[in-house]
């Protein structure tokens, strides 16, 4: 019995490993022709021209990182704020559970629905704000262009909402894991409620909150459908929040259906680049977490 379960557990774990290696191998194999043809210049070139067979993904890399970073900042701040609100006695515990369920339900909304909501609700809502910001603060690079419809801002906002449940619920768990005696210690030292939260509770939960942010960022990097609908699919690099942009995932989603064999090879290379970015981000995140854990927690 025991041995059977152990076998199943081992097999499942091994299967995941095999699957990851297989995916990398398969995509890498398909990308190999493009890799040898375009080399590393593929990552720094800004044209994507099927006719001339010139391909480069720097704008997409930029758009992927920029939109995800914006989403991480917004979703991170709100997610952590929600976690604090739900765990630090601001709400009756029953009410907090209801709130938490609602936030977790956000994760169940299909990506395409978020995309439609973005197009029909968010963009019209954003337009007057964007126009005003561009009009009065147009000299700031972030507001350098006007919002013509899809663009970075609506995409990043929707991404932020999409990563919110991940960030919030993992942060809630890590804050809730803190033993009551730690809170007592903080109040016993004469902290106010906010001092206790900011100087004791958040640092104590820091490794869990970092994990939440890394997972949220990873999710934002790979998000496809909503972004393909909202980002505007423009091959350009701009700091402006209102300019259309593109991401790797959106490029793949929108180009694959009509791509010929030459473009498919380039798209495979782009897919490999996206995979590499997410793997690197996760690895760096894990390393940071490990460092933070070692520093603060030691053995309990």
């Amino acid at each position: 019995m025991d041995r059977g379960f152990r076998g199943i557990a081992w097999a499942s774990a091994a299967f995941i490993l095999v699957l990851v290696v297989y995916i990398i191998f398969e995509i890498g194999g398909k990308a190999l022709p493009a890799m040898s043809q375009y080399g590393l210049g593929f990552l720094t070139s800004t044209t994507w021209n099927v006719q001339t067979e010139q391909f480069g993904i720097l704008p997409q890399i930029w758009g992927t990182l920029y939109s995800s970073l914006l989403a991480l900042i917004l979703g991170g701040v709100f997610g952590i704020a929600i976690a604090i609100f739900l765990t630090q006695d601001f709400l009756h515990s029953g009410l907090a559970a209801v709130f938490r369920t609602i936030i977790e339900m956000l994760a169940a909304i299909p990506s395409v629905v978020f995309g439609l909501w973005g197009i029909y609700v968010l963009i019209p809502l954003l337009r007057p704000v964007a126009d005003w910001l561009h009009g009065s603060l147009g000299f700031v690079p972030f507001f350098g262009t006007s919002l013509s419809g899809p663009g970075l801002a609506p995409a990043a906002l929707v991404l932020a909402i999409m990563i919110l449940p991940t960030v919030a619920s993992i942060s809630v768990d890590s804050l809730r894991q803190i033993p009551y005696k730690v809170k007592e210690a903080a109040y016993g030292m004469g902290t106010t409620r906010w001092e206790a939260i900011l100087k004791v509770m958040l640092p104590t939960a820091s490794s869990g909150i970092l994990a939440a942010l890394v997972l949220g960022f990873g999710r934002a990097l790979g998000e496809t459908m909503a972004l393909a609908m909202l980002i505007g699919n423009a091959n350009q690099i701009s700091l402006s929040l209102f300019a259309p942009a593109n991401t790797l995932a959106a490029l793949l989603a929108s180009s694959f259906p009509e791509a010929g064999p030459v473009e498919v090879r380039a798209l495979m290379y782009a897919a490999l680049a996206l995979l590499a970015i997410t793997l690197i981000v996760n690895a760096v995140g894990l390393a940071v977490m490990k460092f933070a854990t070692r520093k603060f927690e030691a053995e309990r």
């Binding site: 005696k181 730690v182 210690a185 903080a186 016993g188 640092p203």
Partner: peptide
Amino acid sequence: RRYIGMVFQQPNPFAM
């Protein structure tokens, strides 16, 4: 509580 300090039943150092 800043004038009247406290030591608890369970040791409770901060994770610092």
